[in-house]
Simulated scan of single mutants.
Amino acid sequence: MNLRTGTAQYSTHGWMSPLLWVVAAASVTSHVATVVLHLPQGVGGAMMASSLTLFGLLHGASTYGWRGILFFLVVCLGVSNAFENLSIMTGFPFGWYHYSNAIGPKLFLVPLLIGPAYFGMGYLSWTLARTILSDEDTRLAGLLWFVTPVIASFIMVSWDLTIDPMMSTINGSWVWHNGGSYFGVPVSNFLGWYLTVYVFFQCSALFARRRFATYTKIPGYWATPLFAYTSIIMAPILGLLLGSEPATVLADPVGHPWQVQDIRSVAALVCLFTALPFWLLAVFKAGGIARDPQKSPLH
């Protein structure tokens, strides 16, 4: 393969496509099982993070090569851990909070599972943005080197909108010291999320653009990440249908009581009108790419 031609090639590794389907199915199963079976947060988080990390590494290697996806991984882990620790110590950029011991051991002040979760969901968000923008050859030509990180960051934050109140206010995985208007979560958290993910997406985009990377065409290249992402849509809906907590949770640190059913209802609603539309756009665009590959006007 000539990486500087921008031309896709068909993979000679017949095992890659079925393996990606298996790993994508594992991520969906682990995510759904965590909600349905009410698994401990550490167990469910480890299952989801490990399966999504493996998926991101395998799919990413077929897209950018091992050097490219490992760069994405290292930058993602480094930036996310740095910003998380910075905020815990200073309140910037997310706000004042700390992690409980519910999701396992920590690297400095941040649980080890947080970094892989950033990477796994970050890679899916990045791939959905590429699909929506018709970035078929991955060269990030034209404005795509900037637009792709912008869109991917919005997709990533839409996921946090569905999970943060449940993980913090209901489950107590992390605690917001001053509460917040979004079911105990401050608005600064979502602005901080956008900044954090945009930084590592933009760094990765500049690296990919410099390398003129192209993807290895394998069966299910676009379908497997879209399948893996379905768990993000199903989880809050299942949480609403199957939640078993009492009507009212304990008051947050500033004394504000929150209704569990309200939190679960809003999480499902936000998912239906943010994550689901992003996914549908990617599905429709992926279908068009498969039928008649054309460059986006942004190229």
Rank of each mutant, 00 (worst) to 15 (best):
A49K: 02
A61H: 11
C76E: 02
A46Q: 04
F55W: 12
L73I: 06
A49W: 02
F71I: 13
T34C: 01
L58I: 15
V75A: 15
T90D: 09
L57S: 05
F72T: 00
S87Y: 07
V43A: 10
T53I: 08
L58E: 03
L77G: 02
A24L: 07
L86H: 05
T29D: 04
Y64N: 01
F71Q: 04
A33T: 05
F92H: 13
F55P: 00
N81C: 13
V79C: 02
L20N: 03
G42Q: 12
T34S: 12
H31Q: 13
G68I: 07
H13M: 15
G91I: 11
L19Q: 00
A46K: 00
F71R: 06
T34I: 01
V36S: 03
T34R: 01
W15V: 12
H13C: 10
V75S: 09
L70T: 10
Q41P: 00
S17F: 09
S27G: 14
M47W: 14
V79S: 01
L52G: 04
W66G: 06
G91F: 13
W21K: 05
L39W: 10
S62P: 00
G45C: 06
T63R: 11
G68Q: 05
N81F: 13
L54T: 13
G56I: 08
L19G: 05
I88L: 11
